[in-house]
């Protein structure tokens, strides 16, 4: 029995490159990109911002989470050319090892990671989550749509798109809670 596999279209008549302007972590960036380049690969392979991770490239794990226009986004599921003119915020903008952002410091303090590969995505997602709560956006576990408030269950629900196989989940929730509480003082 003969069996043939071939998966791709071979007569691609795509432009070889497209000019894309992004504002990444406050810096204007001009890139000439193959239109097939995902936002994730634009960051990692073209801007060498490797803090944003590729875990699945299918929007299934959340390791690639960045903020675009302040909102959470799986950067692997989005082509860079779709973001011409957009503001992109990545883990690199938050803090440095010597001067951590409060969320980064809370992750270290609470041991909110082990291998560290999902961590930048978890942190960006945590920031997005607190912002969404602040803005009153409800979720599946919000009991009363008129009063959206912080709860650990809200964090668990909203961050379930960020898989941590080392399973630091209880520690991540503790870290997010501590930043939320710190922000309330």
């Amino acid at each position: 029995m003969t069996h043939t596999t071939s998966h791709g279209s071979t007569d691609l008549q795509l432009p070889r490159s497209v000019r894309v302007e992004l504002t990444v972590n406050g810096q204007p960036k001009q890139l000439e990109l193959d239109p097939r380049v995902s936002l994730l690969d634009a960051l990692r392979e073209h801007l060498h911002l490797t803090g944003t991770k590729k875990g699945c490239d299918h929007g299934q794990c959340g390791a690639c989470t960045v903020l675009v226009g302040g909102k959470r986004l799986n950067s692997c599921l989005s082509l860079a050319v779709m973001h011409d003119g957009d503001e992109v915020t990545t883990i690199e903008s938050l803090g440095t090892p010597d001067d951590l952002h409060p969320m980064q410091a809370a992750f270290v303090e609470c041991d909110g990671f082990q291998c560290g590969y999902c961590t930048p995505g978890q942190i960006m997602s945590a920031l997005g989550t607190l912002d969404e709560l602040e803005r009153g956006i409800p979720s599946h576990v919000t009991a009363d749509l008129n009063t959206v408030e912080y709860s650990d269950d809200e964090v668990r629900e909203r961050m379930s798109g960020n898989i941590c196989r080392c399973a630091a989940y209880p520690n991540i929730v503790r870290a997010v809670r501590s930043v939320h509480e710190g922000g309330q003082e």
Binding site: R44, T50, K54, I91, P97, L100, F113
Partner: peptide, 22 residues
């Protein structure tokens, strides 16, 4: 003790195998 390499991991500066080409 908090992880020694923690600050590198939470800032995205820990370098994994695919990332040395930067």
């Amino acid at each position: 003790h908090a992880r020694k390499e923690g600050p590198l991991k939470v800032t995205g500066q820990a370098t994994y195998a695919y990332e040395y080409s930067a």
